[in-house]
Amino acid sequence: MGKGKNTAGIIAGLLAGAAVGVVLGMLYAPEEGKETRKKLKAKANDLKDQALDEYDKVSEKVKSEYGNLSDKAKENLDKVVSSVKDSYEKYKHTAANKASGVVKEVETELDALK
């Protein structure tokens, strides 16, 4: 997820740099103010559209990564639950057998005391 933030930051920086370059270029261009404002507005709209497109791409990538991580976490949780259940079943019988043995020993000792 840190990688997505890094990519988004780089994209934002590039877009901001491009915007500054375009604005400076237009301000120093030998055109009328009205024409320059039209160009600035058009370029701002283009940059906005590019930023929205990049946002959508990064957003989809993050959603995909989240889905992959979520699936892996679920798989791992299922494995842990299965392992715990198996261990429980295994040791449940072992503990029951040992408890049964202890009960028999106690009964034997009690019978001997009679």
Score class of each variant (00 low, 15 high):
M1I: 02
G2L: 12
G2Q: 14
K3G: 04
K3W: 02
G4H: 13
K5S: 13
K5R: 15
T7A: 12
T7I: 14
A8M: 09
A8F: 04
G9I: 03
I10E: 08
I10G: 01
I11K: 01
I11G: 01
A12E: 10
L14N: 08
L14F: 04
A16R: 12
G17Y: 10
A19V: 02
A19Y: 01
V20D: 11
G21R: 08
V22Y: 07
L24Q: 13
G25N: 07
M26I: 10
M26V: 09
M26L: 14
L27A: 05
A29S: 13
A29W: 04
P30C: 00
P30Q: 07
P30M: 01
E31H: 02
E32W: 00
K34P: 00
K34C: 01
E35I: 11
K38P: 03
K38T: 04
K38G: 03
K38M: 05
L40W: 01
K41Y: 07
A42V: 12
A44P: 02
A44T: 11
N45D: 15
N45T: 06
D46W: 04
D46L: 11
L47D: 00
L47Y: 10
D49Q: 14
D49N: 13
Q50P: 02
Q50S: 06
D53N: 15
E54C: 03
Y55G: 11
D56A: 05
K57S: 08
K57E: 05
V58Q: 06
V58G: 02
S59W: 12
S59I: 02
S59G: 02
E60H: 14
K61M: 09
K61W: 05
K61Y: 06
K63E: 12
K63N: 15
S64L: 14
E65K: 14
Y66G: 02
Y66F: 13
G67C: 06
G67N: 13
G67A: 15
N68A: 09
N68Y: 11
L69T: 06
A73T: 02
A73K: 03
K74I: 00
K74N: 03
E75D: 06
E75K: 09
N76C: 03
D78N: 06
D78Y: 01
K79P: 01
V80K: 10
S82F: 05
S82R: 10
V84E: 05
D86A: 10
Y88K: 10
Y88Q: 11
Y88E: 03
Y88L: 09
Y88S: 04
E89G: 00
Y91I: 00
Y91K: 01
K92A: 05
T94G: 03
A95L: 09
A96Q: 12
N97K: 14
K98R: 13
A99D: 10
S100R: 13
S100F: 07
G101R: 10
V102R: 15
V102A: 15
V103S: 10
V103T: 14
K104Y: 01
E105H: 06
V106T: 04
V106H: 06
V106N: 02
E107R: 12
E107H: 09
T108P: 03
T108M: 08
E109T: 12
L110W: 15
D111F: 11
D111C: 08
A112C: 04
L113Y: 12
L113T: 09
L113S: 15
L113V: 09
